[in-house]
């Protein structure tokens, strides 16, 4: 009588035991990266594209309307806001400060708003914008791939979008991201 088992089922190589472990490691890896991402932040399509041509409605007589021409010749910020937007109120003091210190020209796109409410909002919180246009039916917002407010586009001298900030500009974001980028864009030949 021999000691060999009757079953002819093949003995799997030992390293096969590592397959489930490896698969688990891959899955954990996917989750580790995937779960730290904010699914509400969409990848930006606009970067390095020229600002689209647009026609906006003037918000009030006191503030010049935003036109495409104003986005040529120097580095500007285009800030999408709305009187209905809660985060915009939080962001506003920062924009006021940037405008007071004359660090950058900011233009405003009052998105999905009414002239009355938009103007009242600027009266209440102050106007940091060199010009403001009203985008009541989201035409420009859709052209810019905007998904929420506030969003801010850094536009170079040639009128091309070079960076998009989703969510409020904080002091940290300004100091670490926007300001250095704006400075380097300012030095680019037109």
């Amino acid at each position: 009588m021999s000691d060999a088992p009757i079953s002819t089922q093949r003995q799997l190589p030992r390293w096969f035991a590592l397959i489930p472990v490896g698969a688990l490691a891959v899955i954990i890896g996917f989750f580790a990266v995937g779960l730290t991402r904010d699914p509400h932040t969409l990848p930006t399509m606009m970067v390095d594209r020229p600002m689209p041509e647009f026609q906006l409605q003037q918000l009030t007589d006191d503030i010049p309307n935003l036109t495409s021409d104003q986005l040529r010749g120097h580095v500007t910020l285009v800030n999408v806001f709305g009187s209905w937007c809660v985060s915009c109120v939080a962001e506003h003091p920062m924009l006021m400060e940037l405008s007071r210190q004359n660090l950058v020209t900011i233009h405003g796109v009052d998105w999905r708003d009414t002239p009355r409410e938009g103007a009242a909002w600027l009266n209440r919180y102050g106007n940091p914008y060199a010009s403001v246009g009203l985008d009541a039916d989201s035409r420009l917002a859709i052209d810019l791939g905007v998904t929420g407010a506030p969003e801010t586009f850094l536009v170079d001298k040639a009128g091309r979008v070079r960076y998009k900030q989703i969510g409020p500009i904080t002091e940290e974001i300004w100091e670490e991201t926007l300001a250095p980028l704006a400075r380097s864009l300012e030095e680019e030949p037109q």
Partner: peptide
């Protein structure tokens, strides 16, 4: 793009309404 698991046809978001119109 606001309420990401709905199509613009099903969504009540204002942006979806503008996209439908467009």
């Amino acid at each position: 793009v606001v309420c990401q698991n709905q199509s613009i046809e099903d969504s009540a978001a204002p942006l979806a309404a503008d996209m439908r119109q467009l």
